[in-house]
């Protein structure tokens, strides 16, 4: 009896406390690629400011942006991390739910690297190699045929004899989009398969292009290309189990596991923070976070956190984020000014 009374009063007190107290820490959600960078900043923020450290959640770019657009108020998140740009659909959702203004902050670039077991051969890939290894249909003597390649030596005579086995990020990952457009589609065009797909498609010029791009991205389903829906740790474990595997990783993940992985060059360029910053290494993408402008000045520490994130001490070329594998944005100064002025993002172009 006493117990029940105590329980009821405890719950009532808890509910009252939630109504009275404003949330005093920043809530962040979104991309698991941006997550490690956000935690590094959140931790340093907690150490150096009198505000509590923000709470950072993973879960994926798309899910994070949807959460951001759920509405305005303390029970909604303040920042969505994203490894791809926000879409018009997200912005429309934001507008319907009363999230009028969103700030877009680009924090830098992330490289996507191909790596195999540390004792395997040195791969020097081109997008065409990847396409010939993984595509469902490839061009052969001017005609489309089902991909017959089973061995890297068949793909490119420069490679040593090794069965093809590739671990690519699953379709829910933002990384997959970059892999598709910058590697698979590029390889498709290089090998001439794109033109064959376009010729085979029906409709006007635009429809043909769309059909060809779609056909290019179809990967083979005979077990040679394996989709990994988990994290990079899963890809690493798969390569550990089957030494023939080649995996797709983020640059920062590779840099933390150089003792287990051997990185492949792409188009002759070794992926490093430097070569990505210069734009030489082709497979990279910008990383963003999106801030709910209505929460600035309401949630304590929000403005300070985003200013701290883009400061030279953090996101600059010598900061801890660059040390972890983020490629610093050459236009960081413009971003800093944008954040200081609290400029909301314009329409998507």
């Amino acid at each position: 009896m006493k117990f029940a009374k105590f329980a009821a009063s405890a719950l009532a007190m808890a509910a009252a406390a939630s109504a009275a107290d404003a949330r005093d820490q920043v809530q962040i959600t979104g991309s698991s690629t941006v997550l490690p960078y956000a935690t590094i900043v959140a931790e340093a923020f907690g150490e150096n400011f009198d505000f509590p450290s923000p709470v950072v959640e993973g879960g994926g770019s798309g899910a994070g942006r949807k959460k951001l657009c759920e509405g305005v108020g303390e029970t909604t998140v303040d920042i969505a991390n994203s490894s791809s740009r926000i879409s018009q659909g997200d912005l429309d959702l934001c507008a319907t739910n009363g999230v009028a203004e969103v700030m877009e902050v680009r924090i830098g670039y992330d490289g996507i690297v191909f790596a195999s077991d540390v004792n395997s051969q040195d791969f020097a890939f081109t997008p065409a190699d990847i396409y010939l290894a993984l595509a469902k249909d490839i061009a052969k003597d001017g005609a489309l045929v089902a991909n017959p390649n089973k061995n890297w030596a068949e793909v490119n005579a420069n490679f040593k004899d090794q069965p093809i086995l590739m671990f690519v990020p699953g379709t829910k990952h933002g990384t997959r989009e970059v892999f598709d457009t910058k590697v698979v589609e590029a390889g498709c065009k290089e090998t001439g398969a794109y033109d064959l797909f376009a010729a085979a498609a029906e409709g006007d010029e635009k429809a043909k292009k769309a059909a060809a791009a779609k056909a290019c991205m179809e990967l083979r389903t005979d077990g040679v290309s394996v989709d990994i829906d988990g994290d990079y740790t899963e890809t690493l474990a798969r390569i550990d189990a089957d030494k023939n595997g080649v995996g797709v990783f983020g640059l920062s993940f590779y840099q933390n596991n150089t003792d287990k992985l051997r990185v492949a060059t792409m188009g002759g360029i070794v992926p490093t923070v430097d070569s990505i910053a210069k734009g030489e290494y082709p497979v990279s993408r910008p990383l963003y976070f999106y801030v709910k402008r209505a929460h600035l000045g309401v949630i304590p520490g929000l403005k300070e956190y985003i200013e701290f994130f883009v400061s030279d001490d953090m996101a600059g070329p010598n900061g801890p984020l660059a040390a972890y594998g983020l490629v610093s944005d050459p236009e960081l100064a413009a971003t800093q000014k944008m954040v200081a002025d609290e400029t909301p993002m314009g329409a998507l172009n």
Partner: peptide
């Protein structure tokens, strides 16, 4: 499932 760097305060407010 988040990165939480601050201890929750003592009950009852800590539950929030």
């Amino acid at each position: 499932v988040a990165f939480v760097d601050n201890y929750p305060s003592a009950p009852v407010e800590g539950f929030m």
